[in-house]
């Protein structure tokens, strides 16, 4: 494993990672949800989430991270693709062509009057695909001997 470059024992990095990780992930969620109105969206959100996991990979090693996050990233990507396609097919139910989106104001108990767009569902699919794809690639390359 000495050549993978993913395994380093650095206490400072590990400690910082533990704190920063959550901030980065929350920031990525923020970017994702803000995406429709401010810079951000599925692509960037997904990339930053995977960036956070990559940070984890660098601070610890592949095996540890796999134990903490036992996720099959190929499935995550497939799941995202499924959401994206379903959000497109969903528009058939309303008798409009594939991938037609709409938006409107919805009243949600805690948040109050919220502006929602169905495109967000599609964007969620994008988010998952990006996370899944990036992590699949990095993890498989990182695991090779």
């Amino acid at each position: 494993m000495k050549k993978t470059g993913l395994k380093t024992n650095d206490l400072i990095l590990q400690t910082i990672t533990k704190i920063v990780l959550f901030i980065v992930i929350i920031f990525s969620f923020h970017l994702f949800f803000a995406g429709h109105n401010a810079p951000g969206g599925g692509f960037i959100g997904g990339l930053i989430t995977s960036g956070a996991i990559v940070l984890l990979l660098i601070a610890f090693d592949v095996k540890t991270v796999k134990a903490i996050l036992p996720i099959n990233y190929v499935k995550v990507a497939a799941f995202g693709l499924l959401i994206a396609i379903l959000s497109g097919i969903g528009s058939f139910l309303f008798g409009v062509p594939f991938l037609s989106h709409t938006h409107g104001h919805v009243h949600i108990p805690v948040l109050g009057d919220t502006h929602l767009a169905t495109a967000v569902i599609f964007d969620l699919g994008v988010y998952f695909v990006v996370v899944g794809v990036t992590m699949t690639i990095i993890q498989t390359i990182g695991e090779t001997e």
């Binding site: 692509f43 990006v130 990036t134 690639i137 390359i141």
Partner: peptide
């Protein structure tokens, strides 16, 4: 950008 990332990763492997 995102596509070229995927392609680069593919090429590398």
């Amino acid at each position: 950008i995102v596509i070229s990332f995927g392609v680069t990763a593919f090429f590398l492997v």
